[in-house]
């Protein structure tokens, strides 16, 4: 464990908490992509499938974190698609999720470290996570704006990815650890946030809301 990974994971937890709090406090999921949240839930379930295959005793932080990620993302989906369904902006959340799921699944079967069910599910979750934010970014580009709290959520989510890149540089340097699939997918994912980072720094940090030109 190094400081980049620690802060990356904490940032990831913060992102999940910010989104849940936003939905819970405002009793609304307006501006939030249900598809992105559904894709993240699929990512966590397929990545941490080992939790369901073996008896889980909560003796280490990692397992607790995995369970938090899975339950929080499933709960977020429950809020969006059931409890606060009336506030869900389904018409604007129009990116086709299958266009992300199918290529991620296909690529996971073709490019993986080992052709084994658990390993392919892990690889699929990595590829899917790389593009899972796209429906959310697409929704913002369609509505032309993002609430400040949604921007904070995206910033925390993007920071988590950027910190993971620093973590990989650190691990390559000090531990000779290289996981090519995770690194390539992680870099792709981080690049997707760059445009948003620019808007966040030029608008949100200065107290303005993100409004895109029509």
């Amino acid at each position: 464990m190094n400081i980049f990974r620690l802060f990356g994971d904490l940032s990831h937890l913060a992102a999940i908490a910010i989104l849940l709090l936003k939905i819970w406090k405002t009793r609304s999921c307006a501006g939030v992509s249900g598809k992105t949240q559904l894709l993240f839930a699929v990512c966590f379930i397929t990545r941490y499938i080992d939790l369901f295959l073996h008896f889980v005793s909560l003796y280490n932080t990692e397992k607790v974190m995995k369970l938090i990620y899975i339950s929080a993302s499933v709960f977020t989906c429950y809020l969006i698609f059931f409890k606060f369904k009336a506030t869900y902006d389904g018409n604007h959340d129009s990116m086709r999720a299958e266009f992300l799921i199918v290529p991620a699944a296909g690529l996971a079967c073709l490019i993986n470290t080992k052709f084994d069910a658990i390993e392919i599910l892990w690889t699929f979750s990595i590829y899917l996570e790389a593009v899972a934010i796209l429906p959310q970014l697409f929704l913002i580009s369609k509505t032309g704006e993002a609430e400040t709290i949604t921007s904070h959520y995206l910033f925390a989510q993007g920071s988590y990815r950027a910190l993971y890149i620093l973590n990989w540089i650190y691990r390559y340097h000090y531990e000779s650890h290289v996981d090519t699939i995770a690194i390539v997918a992680g870099v792709v994912q981080t690049i997707l946030y760059c445009d948003f980072f620019y808007l966040y720094i030029t608008k949100v940090v200065k107290g303005q809301k993100i409004v895109l030109p029509a």
């Binding site: 990974r5 994971d9 990831h12 995995k66 990620y69 658990i118 892990w122 996981d179 995770a182």
Partner: peptide, 10 residues
Amino acid sequence: DNGQLFHDEL
């Protein structure tokens, strides 16, 4: 090769 690959990141 012990069969199971070990992914230690979350």
